[in-house]
Nucleic acid binder design. Structure first.
Lengths: 209, 209
DNA sequence: CAGTCATTCATACGTTCGTTTTAATCGAAC
DNA sequence: GTTCGATTAAAACGAACGTATGAATGACTG
């Protein structure tokens, strides 16, 4: 604690710069400079830049997934049929909570998550373990019970929408401040607004064909 | 001006590769190779790689903005107080329509938009003109009238959510196929699903403090 | 004290990048 | 047929990148 080891300082710096500039935009030299470490430290501790990214993403995603899973456990222990609002809270809440725990009110972490879910066919694709898929499956079936009549395709579309809204939170959109209000908004307010927004969205009746 | 205009072929190739690999991930050499043009053609026709990006983004964003503006005009010509569902349709609809006009059912364009709104402090920041801000402002005041009691901050949060859902459309999320259904979904279905989803979300009552 | 092991350091290598420069090409106007 | 502006082609430049290497450092062990 008095002397934080080089490895975690590199992880911190990499999380910062990957979120801000993307994987290709953040150079190993910039990361090690920010971390106060030597250039070769990345190779020594992680093997390569891609493996460093995997470590960064894992560190961000794992607590979120654990919280999502625990929240669903808590819900299902009480009733086999949770309400949509409860499912949304348990699923989307951790995305905000873990982000708030980070620096700058989570603005940086939300950017990182946005890059993770938005980068197709990049080095961002190697980190996923089975935990993510498991949690997704469990929420999918829970939502299916809570929203009868919704096709699996439309349900999956909605869940992706939840992820999108959570990820875009507090990322400045469209080049600058919104016209009539301050941004980024306070973290806790954004969390409540998102739950309201997403609960209404998930609860919408199925789209008629 | 005939069939193989080098300038537009470079624009097409750049739109493809910027969407797929991002600004830094798409090299000028890869773009000119895909376009069947010479490396120096980018410098000649656009000046630099950053200006090429600006041209690409402009070409994608301008028709969307024009359609959004025209849709609001049409609405306001009929009634001074359009319903929330009408505003959502007029605002989010063009994001899908213009994407459908593109290749691959718009999957690539949606990725490009996602990169645009997700890249802070990058070269993605130079393209915006006054048209975007104007359209945003007009929708903001229209939504304010349709949703009394909603604070400007929460309203802006919701509009960003609409953009996020539209942008993430058909981008494969979380590394691979969703567990129980095919993806990417058909474009027209996604458009209807999104309107349903977002109308319900925008219509949610204000979050209590 | 000598030894060893993990870590840090300075440095170099080979690639790839965006950009620039200079020459070649081509179509039309005179 | 020549000239001229506009476009394309080929080559090269310097900078930045990810990675690899071997020597220095320093704390702990015997």
């Amino acid at each position: 604690m008095a002397a934080p080891d080089t490895r975690t300082q590199i992880l911190d710096a990499a999380e910062h710069l990957f979120a801000e500039h993307g994987f290709r935009g953040a150079s190993v030299r910039a990361i090690t400079d920010l971390a106060g470490a030597n250039l070769a430290a990345v190779g020594y501790h992680f093997g390569s830049k891609a493996e460093l990214l995997a470590a960064v993403v894992r560190r961000v995603v794992e607590p979120i997934n654990a919280a999502q899973s625990a929240g669903l456990d808590r819900l299902l222990a009480r009733t086999p049929d949770p309400a949509v609002s409860e499912l949304v809270e348990a699923f989307a809440g951790p995305l905000f909570d873990e982000m708030l725990a980070g620096d700058a009110g989570g603005a940086r972490t939300s950017r990182l998550i946005m890059r993770i879910i938005g980068d197709p066919a990049e080095e961002m694709r190697e980190w996923t373990g089975s935990a993510e898929a498991t949690v997704r499956d469990r929420y999918l079936t829970a939502f299916e019970r809570a929203l009868p009549g919704l096709s699996p395709e439309e349900l999956w579309f909605r869940i992706r929408g939840v992820l999108a809204v959570a990820a875009v939170d507090r990322v400045e959109v469209y080049n600058g401040q919104p016209p009539n209000c301050v941004s980024p908004v306070a973290g806790q307010a954004a969390r409540r607004w998102a739950i309201t927004f997403l609960t209404a969205a998930m609860s919408a009746p199925p789209t008629g064909d």
